[in-house]
Every structure is written in structure tokens, then in C-alpha cells.
């Protein structure tokens, strides 16, 4: 318990520092007094605009997307007993990617709320397929991963095809495929927050049950953990979270895959703790990755997915060697 508390406290500190860094650093550097003054009073008009309209929504978007992806990966890995469980890899974000590609290509004329809702609904199609296959008795984690990867590849091909057909080869397209928080404002972020809440609340009642799903369905059912219901709810919740994340930031890879493994390294294998730690850990990983994407080649930017992959790949190899 002490270790868990320390990890949560450490992550809280890292998040606060990251958020301050995200708000203070950039082409216009702000010191801590300017940041606090901009947040609290707004006397410094320039600082107020930079903080409230440009940097704070971007920091918040990174936090929300990171939390969504961390949670989604965590739910997917435990409910399918699959260490490869990741919303991108399992195709849960695929439907959302197609919807977003259609929107970028100008083929869907709708507001942000409607677009985000449609993305989540499309993502639930992928979640439904995974839930259906996962509920079949005897399907191995490897086969489930293959099905997920296939759905994911199909959706990625459709999304890329839509962008190519619309002749969108701009940075907008690159940022979508690689994932990015460029120009994200409150209007892009706020519609995603309720979906984070819904995904979280939906998953909460089954979080305890996920601890015994690892023993196999027959034993879990015998312990009263209702494996089918538990798994379906976890995957649907994962679909909602994954869809919302894609709608805000595009295809940010590695966060959903890596974060649950890192969480297990930090707090052990009690799923309830892994679940709780995956939220701030996903948020912190994405926030710092976005800072790197934004600041390393300033004033130009790279997709945040590049950073998560560059940092995530060696970490994942380490985790695979050490734990899996």
C-alpha cells in the first residue's frame, strides 16, 4: 500500500511539473510568475492568451488523451488476457480513424461534438467485434491479437485511402496518422471529457472482477466474476476511451500498449492498482511526449506518435525482457 501511495504521489508531482512546463515553455517563454498571473488574474494580456487559449488546452488534451489510452490499454490487456492489448493494435480506434479521415477530407460536415460522438460510435464497432470474438470459448490470446491487428490494418488502410483520395498530403494528414496535439483548443477537448468519464464509470464496477479473469473463465465464473459480462463491459469501455482519444489526437501509438505494463512494474499485479495508476501514468507519458514533440525542433513540430514510439519501443523491449 505504501508503494502504491508513493507511486501515486510521484505521478501527481510529475504531472504538475509537466503541466507547468507545458504552459511555460514554447516560442514565447513565460516564467512562473507570468504563468500564475495569467492563470489567476489575467493582467498580462499576452500571457493570458498564450496560457489560456494556446497552451493550457493543449496540456489538458494531452492529459485526457493519455488517460484515455492508458485506461483503454489496461482494460483491454486484462479482459483479453493479452499483453498485446492496445486500442490501436486491436483496431478499437480504427472506426474512429476512418471517421476522422472522412472529416479531414471534408466528407463529413458536422460539429465537434457530433464528430466525436460518431468517432466513439465507430470505435465501438471494432470493440463489438473484439468482444464477440473474445467471448467465444477457446479463442487464444494470440488469435484474438491477430483478429485485432487485422481490423486495425483494415481501418488504417481505409483511413489512408480516404486521405489519399481526397489528395490530402499536408501536415494535417501527417499529424493525424502520427498523432498530434497541434492547435488543439478547448472546443476540441471538452467533448472528449464526458467520454473519459463514461468509459471510467462503466469500467469501475468490473475492475475488481478483472483480477480473477486471469484464472480462466471457468474458475472466474465459479468465483462469481461473470467473465462474459465483465469482459464485454471492459472492451466496450476501452472502445469508448480509444475512440475519444483518436478523435482528439489522431493515432497516438504505444501509450495504450506500454502504460499498463509500466504500471504493473510500479505497483504489482493487483488490477485495481494497475487501473488507478494507468490513468496518471498514461497522462504523464503523453504529456511529456507532447512537450518533446513541440519543443525539440521548435518552431516546427513532429507528430507526438513519433516521440511515444521512440521512447516507448526501448521501454517496451525492456518490459518484455524483464516481465513478460
Amino acid at each position: 500500500m505504501r508503494r502504491f501511495s508513493l507511486v501515486i504521489a510521484g505521478l501527481a508531482l510529475i504531472l504538475v511539473l509537466g503541466a507547468l512546463m507545458g504552459v511555460a515553455l514554447g516560442p514565447v517563454k513565460l516564467d512562473i510568475h507570468q504563468v500564475l498571473s495569467a492563470i489567476l488574474s489575467g493582467e498580462d494580456r499576452m500571457a493570458h492568451v498564450v496560457v489560456w487559449d494556446l497552451r493550457l488546452p493543449r496540456v489538458a488534451a494531452a492529459l485526457v488523451v493519455g488517460a484515455c489510452l492508458g485506461l483503454a490499454g489496461c482494460l483491454l490487456q486484462s479482459s483479453t488476457r493479452n499483453p498485446l492489448g492496445d486500442p490501436q493494435l486491436f483496431g478499437l480506434g480504427g472506426g474512429a480513424a476512418v471517421v476522422q479521415a472522412l472529416a479531414i477530407a471534408g466528407l463529413l460536415g458536422m460539429g465537434t461534438w457530433a464528430l466525436l460522438s460518431l468517432s466513439v460510435a465507430a470505435s465501438l464497432v471494432g470493440a463489438g467485434a473484439i468482444a464477440l470474438f473474445a467471448s467465444r470459448q477457446g479463442i487464444s490470446p494470440a488469435r484474438l491479437a491477430l483478429i485485432g491487428v487485422s481490423i486495425s490494418a483494415l481501418a488504417a488502410a481505409a483511413a489512408t485511402g480516404i486521405l489519399a483520395e481526397a489528395r490530402i498530403f499536408s501536415s494535417q494528414s501527417l499529424y493525424f496518422i502520427g498523432g498530434s496535439f497541434v492547435n488543439r483548443g478547448w472546443q476540441d477537448l471538452l467533448p472528449a471529457v464526458p467520454f473519459l468519464g463514461v468509459g471510467l464509470l462503466l469500467a469501475l464496477p468490473v475492475v475488481g472482477n478483472l483480477n480473477v479473469l486471469g484464472l480462466g473463465d471457468r474458475v472466474a465464473a465459479n468465483l462469481g466474476a461473470e467473465p462474459r459480462r465483465t469482459r464485454t463491459i471492459a472492451i466496450v469501455s476501452s472502445g469508448i476511451l480509444g475512440g475519444a482519444a483518436v478523435a482528439v489526437a489522431g493515432l497516438v501509438g504505444f501509450v495504450g500498449l506500454l502504460v499498463p505494463h509500466l504500471a504493473r512494474l510500479l505497483v504489482g499485479h493487483d488490477f485495481r492498482r494497475v487501473f488507478l495508476v494507468s490513468i496518471p501514468l498514461g497522462a504523464a507519458f503523453t504529456l511529456y511526449a507532447d512537450q518533446a514533440a513541440r519543443l525539440i525542433f521548435m518552431p516546427s513540430e513532429i507528430p507526438v506518435g513519433l516521440v511515444t514510439a521512440i521512447v516507448g519501443a526501448p521501454l517496451m523491449i525492456y518490459v518484455a525482457r524483464r516481465v513478460l
Partner: peptide
């Protein structure tokens, strides 16, 4: 941990 899971109770499993 395995044997302790034998005491698992599905109700209130979040705080079990």
C-alpha cells in the same frame, strides 16, 4: 496471491 484469490468476493470487488 493465488490462494488469496480463493477468498475473492464479487460484490464490492473494487474495494475487496
Amino acid at each position: 496471491e493465488l490462494v488469496a484469490l480463493g477468498r475473492f468476493h464479487p460484490y464490492g470487488a473494487l474495494w475487496w
